[in-house]
Simulated assay, not measured.
Amino acid sequence: MKIIKIALSILFLVCLFDMPYGYFQLVRFLGMIGFIVLAYNYYPKNQNWSILWVSSAILINPFIKITLGREIWNIVDVSFAIVLTYSAFKKSKSLK
């Protein structure tokens, strides 16, 4: 799971640069899949993290887009990167 979190963090941080629209679509799709996988793996052991990952997947899903504006999406991207990095390196007794 650590590799998924780090990869998603990098994808979200690259969104801060001036990228083509197709990249953002790719990030939405990969992010949704990554968050769903994380939610599935966390659900039986830690429901709080699972709820966070499901909420994140809903927010960035590419099918029903939520329009927030570039500045707010930048804040969301940085927040995702921080939370993902934190959870990747946090010592957990119940989930590794």
Results as ranks from 00 to 15, higher is better:
1 M>W: 08
5 K>Q: 04
7 A>L: 13
8 L>H: 02
12 F>C: 02
15 C>D: 11
16 L>R: 03
18 D>T: 13
18 D>E: 14
19 M>K: 04
21 Y>R: 14
21 Y>C: 08
22 G>N: 09
22 G>Q: 11
23 Y>F: 15
24 F>N: 08
24 F>M: 05
25 Q>H: 15
26 L>V: 11
27 V>T: 07
28 R>Q: 14
28 R>C: 12
29 F>Q: 12
29 F>G: 12
29 F>D: 05
30 L>Y: 02
31 G>A: 04
31 G>F: 03
35 F>K: 03
35 F>W: 06
36 I>H: 04
39 A>N: 00
40 Y>Q: 03
40 Y>V: 13
43 Y>E: 14
43 Y>N: 10
45 K>W: 06
48 N>R: 03
48 N>Q: 08
48 N>W: 00
50 S>V: 03
50 S>A: 15
51 I>T: 07
52 L>H: 07
53 W>Q: 01
55 S>F: 11
57 A>E: 01
57 A>G: 04
58 I>P: 02
58 I>C: 11
64 I>T: 09
65 K>C: 12
66 I>R: 11
66 I>V: 14
69 G>P: 02
70 R>D: 15
71 E>R: 11
72 I>Q: 07
72 I>E: 09
73 W>L: 01
73 W>P: 05
74 N>P: 01
74 N>V: 00
75 I>L: 12
76 V>P: 04
76 V>W: 02
76 V>S: 07
78 V>Q: 06
78 V>K: 01
83 V>W: 07
86 Y>A: 11
87 S>N: 08
88 A>R: 01
89 F>S: 01
89 F>Q: 04
90 K>G: 08
91 K>N: 10
91 K>A: 07
92 S>Q: 13
94 S>R: 08
95 L>S: 10
